[in-house]
Design a protein around this nucleic acid. Sequence first.
DNA 1: ATGAAAGCGCTAACAG
DNA 2: CTGTTAGCGCTTTCAT
Lengths: 355, 355
Amino acid sequence: MSTRQVGIKDVAAAAGVSIATVSQVLNNVAYARVGAETRDRVHQAARRLGYGPNRLAQALRTRRSDVIGVICEDMATAPNSGLVILGSVEAAKVRGYTIMIINAPGTGPDGSGDAGVATLMDRQVDGILYAAKGRRRLRVPAGLVGLPAVLVDAEDVGHSVSSVIPDEEGGARTAVQTLIDAGHTRIGMITSTDDVPEAHSRLLAFKDTLVDAGLEFRAELVQSEPSTDAAGGYRAALRLMQRDRRPTAVFCFNDLMAMGLYRAAAELGVSIPDELSVVGFDNQELIAGNLHPALTTVSLPHYEMGARAVEILIDAIEGNTGPGPLTALPAVLPCTLVARDSVAPPSGQAVTPWA
Amino acid sequence: MSTRQVGIKDVAAAAGVSIATVSQVLNNVAYARVGAETRDRVHQAARRLGYGPNRLAQALRTRRSDVIGVICEDMATAPNSGLVILGSVEAAKVRGYTIMIINAPGTGPDGSGDAGVATLMDRQVDGILYAAKGRRRLRVPAGLVGLPAVLVDAEDVGHSVSSVIPDEEGGARTAVQTLIDAGHTRIGMITSTDDVPEAHSRLLAFKDTLVDAGLEFRAELVQSEPSTDAAGGYRAALRLMQRDRRPTAVFCFNDLMAMGLYRAAAELGVSIPDELSVVGFDNQELIAGNLHPALTTVSLPHYEMGARAVEILIDAIEGNTGPGPLTALPAVLPCTLVARDSVAPPSGQAVTPWA
DNA sequence: ATGAAAGCGCTAACAG
DNA sequence: CTGTTAGCGCTTTCAT
């Protein structure tokens, strides 16, 4: 803003060539056959003047802005939305793109980013990433369909937009299997009474993993609560732990509920992990890393989803995606176990007097 | 991308006027005196065709992109960086701007966003927001000085960039005063041994608030630890609580340390808030809201800083800032108390046998 | 091997 | 009151 921004024509003047030539050498145009010595002059002039291309002008001309719009539902409220943004920002950078971001209130069953889509398209973004607030399926804003777009952490009900989702069920199986592998046979679960997809899939994975391991599923060992925070976890845990034969391990719907379980255990004088193993879900670093003992949990691939979505999007934009439609099957990314200190083999001693 | 984007000339054709007229009515140019009936035709045509201006073309022509670049140090790692982003996104939207965001590794004593500044300037952003990772002072990237820029959560050592910072000390005073107001006279503190500015300012505020209230500052009632997480808080708390006369209330350096204090209290059988009041700092919702009892704490104005910074920036860009230099005193935003359930009057009973 | 010229979609003087 | 014209900074055909 101080000294007027140097442009291609300044470079041209300094190098004693035409602006066309400057453009060609600076962009390494294949067909342009420019003398080696000329190239040098141009490059040097550019460097000397501190030339940087005006990406707006380039975009106007080439009809490619190299910017990706990100619509984030309830940014900063949704836990870890920061990570999907970071993933997309970094993946974009690698490919020479930049992220333009807007927020969308995540209310109602439908995606709410309609105005957002328009805003971003006016700004000529090359494609749009819609980061949903962890709902399974949603109806994407009408404006989205037809243009390069990918949905993160949700699938479009109309299957008209491709998406990147976590392998929820695999993650839950991993969690339960971790407990089984540690030697537990009497495993409980604390979960949500809400009719949300995660609740179903995690419960299902819990059952399946148990029976796959030849273990019995006992309905009385799963306790649910409407609120999936620490308070809910505490109440569910109390019910679970105050029965005749309590489990030696429990799988929690999320880290917050696990936090409630920790409190219940402390009050009942049962020690984690010696007398009770626990694994959570979500890997909320702040919680999982600061509970005592640190919570073993399953991590949702937030960063990876953001990054992957951007890659898919850019491939689509640049046409590297082959002739097939953008709308293939959703990319499903693994949820990995983050092992900390809350899992141990069951203690030798009987957990209850008569067991 | 399907049907070629409609442009100003399509509207002109549809309305039977020239593109200049369209531009003028759509932009409400003051001096342009266009017939009311013509205006209507234009507006209708525009609406009917679903016209949206190509903001890139506008920007190229007007030399104003209406986009603000945000450089975020360690986005998503820094706690609550999501909130400053959200604040800036929403404030920008109100003024018709959009946010373009990039990440910068927050290592070393200096701001690391040099490349980032260049990237953003190439994209013709109108100004830059540099969101630091909660360090007090830093040397901003050289490219920043001279252009519209504001620093969030830090001050430039060269005072060449204006900034928005939290009233750390005021927040700490509020925290301590809350305890005093509840009737406590024997108040402890758990803090960091690190030589970081927050540690100094919070400790100072602690002392000052005490003496201002006519209370005695006792060095033995402040316990520090190098690690400011729950583990550190636990260790410090143990030392603090196992003395002859323990405090009836404690002010914690942050919510994580408070979390450690909760554990220590539980183990020692002292009940919060009946026998011990506690107030934290940071308002990490996930922690503070899920501890039991919920933690009363002081909130850092992350969202507000982002929003305020954008407003300052836009004022500077649009020249509403008066003749004065952009680099005025830093804007300091209040840290407010978030009252939850961890503070109560001191219990009537003596805390120790002989007290 | 290099340059002239047209034009991306829009705004801002200025002319009618 | 409205239209013509000249660019913003760049890329890309097409001449030379």
